[in-house]
Write a protein that binds this DNA or RNA. Structure first.
Lengths: 165, 165
DNA sequence: GTTACTGCAAACACTTTGCACAGCT
DNA sequence: AGCTGTGCAAAGTGTTTGCAGTAAC
């Protein structure tokens, strides 16, 4: 299954005359392994460094850009902070429905297409040809709600900045 | 009406021991005048400079931050590029439904709450306490669709970078 | 008279780029 | 052999901060 993905990705790269270098393979490995997390470029850099210590941050950014144009990963920008990257297992159109806790920073995802009706309504009323959409829901997760009840000045459930795993 | 807004804003500032300086007034003026556009910090800076040439960019950023915490303006981050700011006339909870053309960069808005049902469904299934949400729809506006049909390599309807009004 | 605010410039964080060398194919 | 990819360091961009002077309250 992973090897099927791998050969498909090699093809995708080859189609555009991109090479499948060990650096790109190492980065891909990190992204696939952490496919349920949203990683920053720096996190990907540091994790890739474990397997490939010589790698440079510039290579990571260049690779992520290529992977994004090929649809291998998705890039998100929820706030003014750094972008987050995530593996896109199916290479298909991806609905970005994210539920973000304002206290602990955790991000959960909904992949169902909840917005078909809304898209249709907007397309009809504006003539817009819709390609994609992005929905972010902000609030408080159950854990943080509980903690907030207990100690109104307490600490978040998880540190908002998940710098290290 | 504007004066009513103004006194209300003065109150909001005073409540938090913020002062109503001429710089803040000038910035507010720009934001209210352009309340149907999404302005970058730099655009606000340059427009404010017309009325108040001595102003510095740092003051603009500091003022925008204060205005945002008071709910006077809203700040958006659609991409990795700079943030956009917009006046929030009602100071109420604001639904950010933006329709963004991928070709000319124009941004239109829907202020109806299209997502109540979806919010309810997510709250029920996850226990999340939802505070706000942000929806961005990406596609092509009618003008750009027409232009794309005519000349498949033509120019966008409007420059994507609206540096000057 | 306090205290918050300002403008400047320097610092900042994240990301991109120029360059000479290395390595696929 | 040729062209793409790499690592480094330097540059770039948008935003924030330290500081000494200034102005609102």
């Amino acid at each position: 299954m992973v090897s099927k993905k791998l050969s498909h990705i090699k093809e995708l790269l080859a189609e555009k005359d991109y090479r499948f270098t060990p650096q790109r393979e190492a980065i891909l490995h990190v992204i696939v392994e952490c496919q349920h997390s949203h990683l920053t470029a720096d996190e990907i850099y540091r994790k890739t460094k474990e397997a490939y210590p010589e790698i440079g941050i510039a290579t990571v950014y260049r690779t992520l850009e290529i992977f994004e144009t090929l649809g291998i990963i998705h890039k998100f920008q929820f706030s003014e902070e750094r972008a987050l990257y995530e593996f896109n297992p199916g290479y298909h159109k991806h609905y970005h429905h994210h539920v973000i806790c304002l206290r602990c920073g955790s991000i959960s995802e909904f992949n169902e297409d909840l917005l078909e009706d809304i898209e249709d309504a907007i397309a009809r009323s504006t003539g817009f040809s819709i390609v994609d959409h992005s929905l972010a829901i902000y609030g408080y997760c159950t854990t943080c709600q509980e903690q907030q009840e207990q100690t109104d000045s307490g600490n978040p459930a998880k540190p908002a900045d998940l710098d290290e795993e």
